[in-house]
Design a protein around this nucleic acid. Structure first.
Lengths: 371, 371
DNA sequence: GTAGATGGCACAATCGATTGTGTAAAGTAA
DNA sequence: TTACTTTACACAATCGATTGTGCCATCTAC
């Protein structure tokens, strides 16, 4: 009946010691062991010492399964991401794992592969694993959100990040894309640029819509006109960036700066500018978005917006832990928007060096720290 | 006494249905439910149907904790990696998660942050979480391997990948770096290069030693002399690649090709060649190693060796599952070496196009697939 | 000296699923 | 019809930790 024997047939393997073993050895009850280990007040200091010493001696490790089963909650957090590749998601996961582990939690990670069905299955698995909370970045094919209702009805803390369910009744952490577009454009203005073009992304995606809005905000604030002929829309691929730059340079009055809503697009623009013999940033300044790894190795390196991947993960965990600690008590859902970070690099840095004026973004100190 | 009430105070949250609930509803025992769900032979087909239907109706999800506790093994695999960043580890983790999930396992992921102490703690946590097996890539500071003895003594399947414990009594999956150095150099030879330099890495690290050895193997096979003046050692950073190229080009007889043991180093070399007005690959061909993301966006794109990250993850899982399925029966440890994949790109492609001769590596079809 | 308080520990139920054994009823063979 | 299988299910122990309650002993107070 016992699934394992206390004395394994292979004599080189040993089974872990349980509280029962410790209790037997000390001639006390398991209650005493359990309470001694969790520093319960009803156990005397002498007994506590004895138990602790014995636990050390046998290198006792509590069985988390048993504990979680009894308590109804494990020390596990579930993550559901579309995939673990590229620069963004791995970094966020890194942030999540770091923050979670610091708080005594471990993470079990699932990929949806951009597939709603898989996303649903992942949620079921996490539920059956009795995780203490779930962090989700939606798959691209998720348009129906009913499967999250099951999570909510179990009373399980749920936080979305980056790709979120819109609305103010969910907990979510995102990057403030509008602010990103704003500071980026503002920076180009500070560099003396006055005709700033924008290579925009698909406007049905919030991130691109918001980046464009930030761009417009900065222009308006500077008293510059909103010129639609300077805004080109595409899917943000590298060659589309090149094509966009070609079109911009063919304009009667070419721009003196380009703010691309994505780094690959910015890269294409940079390469096209070079092909046409233009100097960057002297003739045309360029700024991208996302802080892709390659932006530091181009010549010149590309000014971009860091998406605070790590911070996003940490913020998501903080929020999740808050909800967990609320422990069922009503918790007002919250949406967190992270301040993007402008990384000024060669592709846009036209001012004479040194005089670190107040306009020069302090975050520039991060230039080149990418491994 | 009950940690949770069946009827939560917050009426919008409901507790999950258990086998006991199903049993009560059908008026049978939990035994019947359990066995019906696991398709046990001692349950009649009629009853099985009834149970299955009811389970669907209530959307029953077995409590994995309880199951794992009873069976002594969970459906979880543990991963310990130095960190989840860059290109390599995320991709391997991606491969691991994909393969594991296909086999019905989920992964709990831990970072050692290159710290042995943290690595030790991670192992303890995974042990106490009762994982079914552990996948490890060693931290850089791990020189003492005793903590893995604890894993072994528990009879827990253990597989190392990439950064492994050397020896034939461990299970491990690595890239065949020597083969990588060989095919890379061989490719350069096939392109007509005859003076092939090597930008080598620290020789106390196995990967670099092996890449260098593969390079030498190819030269020897081609009947070319081993010329130490063409081998420069460094830490493989970008600027060291540039410096290396400077030194090489200053030689009385400059090389017509450079095989760098790392992509960043190759990048530096490429940039330096351009600075000196050389054409790549016509004047000097360049090949790197690791298939970093940026290698496809340089001009020309850099020929490199793909490290088969995903396959490494999958191979590691396959091996781990084999050991798990051996279920304690003696299993002879195995070391797997993955065949690297040469990606021929512009930095070394000097032959006229089209005639896809047998020497032209077929893996070239992967060029440009990086998102 | 007795009542009440406090300290220190054990009993036993419990979380939810699994499984060896027991036991009826139904089916088969002789 | 008797005996022996097979089918179909229930009983109850079990995995390991947690926790409400009960109990005894010692201690304080009046």
């Amino acid at each position: 009946m016992a699934p394992r024997k206390k004395q394994a047939p292979d004599s080189t393997t040993t089974s872990p010691v349980s509280m029962a073993d410790l209790a037997r050895e000390l001639g006390v009850s398991m209650t005493t062991i359990s309470r001694a280990l969790s520093d319960h007040h009803s156990i005397g200091p002498a007994m506590k010492q004895k138990v602790l010493k014995l636990a050390k001696k046998y290198n006792y490790q509590p069985n988390r399964l048993a504990s979680a089963l009894r308590k109804g909650k494990s020390q596990l957090l579930g993550i559901v991401v579309p995939y673990i590749e590229g620069r963004f998601f791995p970094s966020v996961v890194h942030g999540i794992e770091t923050a979670a582990s610091r708080a005594g939690y471990n993470v079990i990670i699932c990929q949806s592969n951009e597939d709603v069905a898989q996303e649903r299955r992942n949620l079921d698995i996490l539920l059956s694993a009795q995780v203490a909370g779930i962090l989700v970045s939606l798959s691209r094919t998720t348009h129906d959100f009913r499967h999250f209702e099951k999570v909510r009805s179990r009373g399980l803390p749920l936080v979305f990040f980056d790709r979120i369910v819109e609305g103010d009744n969910v907990n979510a952490v995102v990057l403030d894309d509008q602010e990103g577009g704003y500071v980026s454009t503002r920076h180009l203005l500070n560099q003396g640029c006055r005709r700033i073009a924008h290579l925009a992304g698909p406007q049905h995606l919030n991130i691109y819509k918001n980046r464009r809005q930030g761009y417009l905000d900065a222009l308006r604030e500077a008293g510059l006109p909103e010129d639609e002929s300077l805004i080109l829309y595409s899917d943000m691929a590298q060659d589309q960036g090149a094509e966009g730059m070609r079109q911009l340079l063919a304009l009667p009055s070419a721009p003196d700066a380009v703010f691309a809503a994505g780094d690959y697009c910015a890269l294409g623009a940079l390469q096209e500018a070079h092909r046409q013999g233009l100097r960057v940033p002297e003739d045309v300044a360029i700024a991208g978005f996302s802080n892709e790894t390659f932006t530091v190795i181009t010549q010149p390196p590309i000014t971009t917006i860091d998406q605070r991947c790590e911070e996003m993960g940490q913020a998501a965990v903080r929020l999740l832990l808050e909800i967990i600690e609320a422990d069922g008590r009503p918790f007002t859902p919250r949406q967190v928007a992270l301040r993007p970070e402008l990384l000024v690099r060669g592709s846009s840095d036209r001012l004479p060096a040194v005089p670190a004026g107040p306009l020069r973004d302090p975050s520039a100190k991060f230039i080149g720290t990418l491994a």
